[in-house]
Nucleic acid binder design. Sequence first.
DNA 1: AAATGCTAATCC
DNA 2: GGATTAGCATTT
Length: 244
Amino acid sequence: MTGSKVDDQMELISHFYPQNLLPISTRRREGIMASSKVDDQMELISHFYPHIYAQLAQEQVSLGETVKPRRRRKKNKVEGSEVVMRKRKLLSEEQVNLLEQSFGDEHKLEMERKAKLASELGLDPHQVAVWFQNRRARWKNKKIEEEYSKLKTQHETTIIEKYRLETEVLKMKEQLCEAEMEIQKLLLERKSDISSNNSPISSIFSMEQQHFDLGEFGMEGKLMDDNMFFVADNQSTYITLWDN
DNA sequence: AAATGCTAATCC
DNA sequence: GGATTAGCATTT
């Protein structure tokens, strides 16, 4: 890696992440490189002691170093022939905790709260704003997913109930069909009996049957003739014959 | 090491 | 504010 490339990189880092332009950066410039350890150190400081980190950053600024937070540039962008890589640093657990706590209180972020949080966390207020924006998006997604799975289980139980009811209807139709067939069968038997006996046609098909109310049994009955009794309740149909 | 997940940051 | 990108971590 050439020196100028390192410089270019530093320029980019400071461009996107002015807060990274601190003590260590000089060492990098001087080619001592192996930056990862030093970076890790600063990262640790920023992660676990955001206040101290913020303070350090503030000192650097007041010492006159040109660390103006310029507006961030985008992603992989071709500048001349160079491909610019965007850097990204995760927030520390502590920072996230405080942000979460704050988000729990109120999803919206007014200027005052933003500034306060930013200084407490040692972050750019813009970062805080972005965090809240993203957090709201995540929250909304979660809500949508919750609503979706709620509707899904609701739909599933409805489908099951529908199936159960359809089965019940089928069963009842079958029962009804059997009962009607039984009636037909018995009526036909009776009819042929009567005609073979050559006896006068009884009142089976007329409206003159005597009507009984067997309320005590929750049934209704009709006397068909001397030894046949037609009973119907809401479950099934019976023909009761008794010997004389 | 490819796939996947998460999320900070960017763009519109 | 929504959609998207891309860096980083974790999982497979």
